[in-house]
Design a protein around this nucleic acid. Structure first.
Length: 828
DNA sequence: CTAGGGTTAG
């Protein structure tokens, strides 16, 4: 009934009541409303109080209550007004009052003013207390000014005041958060000397830091020690400890450990909070268990734990990332049905799906949907759009969006800067990008103003926190593009520069150099980078080694590749499908096809499933040496392992066509037509032409008829050889009929290879298909599950198929470019 | 009454 309470004011103010009673009643209304967060009501009552009883100042307690409420509502303006009123009314502020003021100033990024206030607190009634110190130390930490927080701690000790455990924990967790585990440990020592014992919060900070650094097993060790309470009297793990450990296992892809922990939590009754469920939900999603995640969501509802927007968003984002937009949509409907409104996170996830697919109209639709449901783009949303616009080369619109973001006061943070810098690099403005990054050290995001927009007004030196400085990703972008442009010396200079600025390189940045050197054929330099990584204790990854294998392959150094792969084995660096693909590529390049095929066996032995690239290379290699039986066997193996993929059929079709095997090529084309694949990558035109040349006009003719019957829209030139041949044979009637169809086709043909039905039937057929998918989440999820189930079976079948491969090879060169190197997009 | 540890999107 609280919101209704304010109607009482009129009754209270009736003249027949005693003034003292009215004052008491009004004060009560103010305090009740304020502590319930009803700021507007509280203020209205407060105004009545002040105007009715101007000579009776309210208590400091009442002011405090209002101040706290204003602070909660992030109304720094009100905080200031109320404080002035307090002074005006002659009410002396208390320490608590100052503490609220300090918090409020920090909230509006006025940390220096907060410090000033702290330093000038009247020593009489309100000396700074442990909260004053604690609040300021906390805010310094949050602003990234840890050194100033520590200075304040030192000052406390100088003043002979002993810091409490919360203050120590604040600092310890802050050090843990930026990875300074050593500093954190020093503080634990210091707090022990002060007679304070680390409590569960201290331990949680440590576990959190270890998990974040990928040292999950060490974290688990501590967790286990905490569970055995007899030992050193360590604090017992609480719900947060369990959550941290669970998140750690999930982050480290230790799904089974996570699952065991969840069971433990269930038994012990710790799997009770929404947050715990959300962590487990995101863990399942991260490990690709989307079906299980869906089941968990249902379980939550059954257990009476209402999923919140986090829960739904975790699932929706996961589905989008897996490409399952219909599944995501369906969860969004579920979300609405259960009374949770989609928020900017929900829409941003969907938007991202459309943007990565370069589906601009879809993206715009989402934006409309978003705004019409009262949700507005935030800086995440804008960054997604910004990146998309740069990718599309719509630079002017990107700049406009940037201006708009600036106007709306969205923080142009380091992510925004990185998007713009990457955009510039990809649009041939590498030097401009370098210039901007240099400027960023001075002006932060305002350096983007050098794009031509007047952003220099953004310079704000008061906030050390807000100034965004170039980081690891920023340098990775520049170095990557410098290497791609062959400017390795400059790249190396930038590496030194970043290390000088205390930005530590990671293995990805070293990989960029490895790739750069390999690209230039300087494999020995690339190896120097590898050894340098080892020296700098920056563990080379599978990717690093894959790049080196690729580099060696380019130089036909097969022996060296084999040595390197042995080294991987010894150093415990797992080989993946790309490692083997690079080796197979090198072998095929050296015309060692049988050896290449035998690598397949080794892969299977090591439980590494070959992918389409693996099979494609081998198929091409076998075709090249005219071992078409082996190529066929490979093809069937590929279908088993990878599924009925269009690329596999088009590859066979193209290969057979290239080697003059027209009727085989035709058969593959026919299968493609039956399966209603896109014909985009099939040489259908050449096949028809060739069939006519070889006096198989009927075959060509029937192919065309099938294509028409299946409502394909294809290159009208395909008709010509058939029409010509029919004409020559005197079949004028058929020739005319085809000419007519050709004209019809030409009228619709725009160079793209879409199915005819898409055009003629206004998408209705497609829509029906899509709706079918949309009805059940099931179909998408089923596919995903099927993929998991499928791989094992595929492996077994493959093992059967592979027998009989690899015999006989005739050397032949193989000029083909495959995408053998890992993608080089710099992403987080 | 006010400061510390855990979940979602770029």
């Amino acid at each position: 009934m609280l919101p209704e309470l304010h109607h009482l004011r009129r009754l209270i103010l009736l003249p027949r009541h005693r003034p003292a009673a009215v004052r008491t009643a009004l004060s009560a209304l103010v305090s009740v409303s304020a502590s319930s967060g009803l700021l507007d009501h509280a203020l209205a009552h407060f105004r009545s109080l002040r105007s009715q009883f101007p000579s009776h100042p309210p208590s400091a307690r009442l002011y405090n209550c209002l101040l706290k409420c204003s602070l909660r509502a992030h109304r720094a303006d009100l905080v200031e007004v109320l404080y002035r009123d307090m002074l005006l009314a002659g009410v002396p502020p208390e320490t608590y009052t100052f503490n609220i003021l300090i918090s409020s100033l920090c909230d509006s990024d006025r940390i220096e003013e907060a410090r000033l206030l702290f330093d000038n607190m009247p020593l009489k009634n309100c000396q700074p207390d442990e909260f004053s110190f604690g609040i300021l130390i906390c805010r310094y930490c949050k602003a990234g000014l840890t050194h100033r927080a520590v200075e304040l701690l030192d000052e406390m000790e100088r003043l002979g005041r002993s810091p409490n455990i919360v203050i120590y924990n604040t600092l310890i967790s802050s050090f843990c958060k930026d990875g300074s585990i050593g500093e954190a440990e020093k503080l634990v020592e210091r707090m022990r000397k002060d007679g304070l014992f680390p409590n569960v919060v201290t331990f949680n900070s440590r576990i959190s830091a270890l998990c974040k650094a990928g040292r999950v097993l060490e974290a688990y060790q501590i967790f286990r020690d905490m569970q055995e309470d007899k030992v050193l009297g360590l604090p017992r793990p609480n719900q947060i400890t369990f959550n941290l450990m669970l998140a750690g296992f999930c982050k480290g892809d230790m799904l089974e450990e996570a699952r065991a922990l969840v069971e433990l939590m269930k038994v012990g009754g710790s799997l009770a909070s929404l947050q715990s469920y959300n962590i487990w939900l995101s863990g399942l999603v991260k490990c690709g268990r989307l079906l299980e995640a869906q089941q968990l969501l249902e379980e939550m509802v059954q257990q009476g734990i209402e999923p919140n927007s986090y829960s739904y968003n975790i699932l929706i984002d996961g589905l989008c990332k897996e490409g399952m937009i219909y599944g995501a949509r369906s969860v969004m409907s579920l979300m609405k049905k259960y009374g949770t409104s989609p928020d900017p996170v929900t829409y941003s996830s969907l938007l991202h799906w459309y943007c990565t697919r370069r589906n601009i109209s879809g993206a715009i639709k989402i934006l409309h949907e978003m705004t019409s449901s009262g949700c507005f783009p935030n800086s995440f949303t804008c960054n997604i759009l910004l990146q998309s616009l740069w990718k599309e080369g719509r630079i002017l619109e990107a700049e406009k969006l940037l201006q708009e973001m600036n106007k709306k006061g969205y923080g142009l943070d380091i992510v925004t800067c990185n998007i713009v810098i990457n955009g510039l690099c990809e649009n041939g403005k590498l030097d401009k990008a370098i210039e901007i990054v240099n400027g960023m050290w001075q002006h932060g995001s305002a350096a983007l103003g050098e794009l031509g927009n007047a952003f220099l007004g953004l310079v704000d030196d008061r906030n050390e926190k807000k100034k965004c400085s170039p980081g690891l990703i920023t340098y990775s972008i520049l170095i990557n593009h410098l290497c791609k442009a062959g400017r390795l010396d400059e790249a190396r200079k930038l590496l030194l520069e970043m290390m000088g600025k205390n930005v530590a390189p990671d293995s990805i940045i070293y990989d960029i150099f490895v790739r750069g050197f390999c690209n230039q054929g300087k494999v020995s330099s690339a190896f120097k980078v590898l050894r340098d990584m080892e020296k700098k204790s920056c563990r080379p990854s599978t990717r690093t080694y894959n790049l080196l294998i690729w580099g060696l392959g380019k130089k036909h150094q097969i022996e060296e590749i084999l040595d390197l792969m042995n080294e991987m084995q010894q150093k415990g660096i797992p080989k993946d499908v790309r490692s083997y693909n690079n080796l197979i590529h090198a072998l095929c390049d050296r015309e060692m096809v049988d050896k290449a095929a035998s690598i397949l066996e080794e892969m299977l032995h090591n439980s590494i499933l070959p992918n389409i690239t693996t099979f494609s290379m081998l198929i091409r290699a076998f075709c090249k040496i005219s071992d078409f039986d082996a190529a066929q066997a490979m093809f069937h193996g590929a279908l088993t392992a990878c599924g009925q993929k269009e690329v596999l059929y088009s590859l066979m079709c193209n290969e057979y066509f290239m080697y003059g095997k027209i009727s085989e090529a035709k058969e593959f084309l026919q299968i493609a037509l039956e399966k209603e694949f896109s014909l985009e990558h099939f040489p259908y035109k050449n096949i028809v032409e060739e069939l006519c040349k070889e006096d198989m006009i009927d075959d060509g003719h029937s192919l065309i008829n099938t294509m028409i019957a299946k409502r394909y829209l294809f290159d009208p030139a395909t008709f010509m050889p058939v029409i010509d041949a029919l004409g020559k044979k005197g079949n004028k009637h058929e020739a005319d009929k085809l000419s007519e169809k050709m004209m019809d086709m030409a009228a619709h043909h725009d160079g793209s290879m879409v199915s005819f039905s898409d055009c003629l039937h206004g998408d209705s057929e497609n829509k029906r298909k899509k709706q079918k998918q949309e009805v059940s989440l099931g179909s998408d999820w089923h596919n995903l599950l099927h993929r998991d189930d499928g791989s094992g079976i595929a492996m077994k079948l493959l093992k059967r198929v592979q027998k009989g491969w690899g015999q006989g090879s005739i050397p032949a060169p193989r000029p083909q470019n495959f995408d053998l190197v890992d993608e080089w997009e710099i992403t987080n």
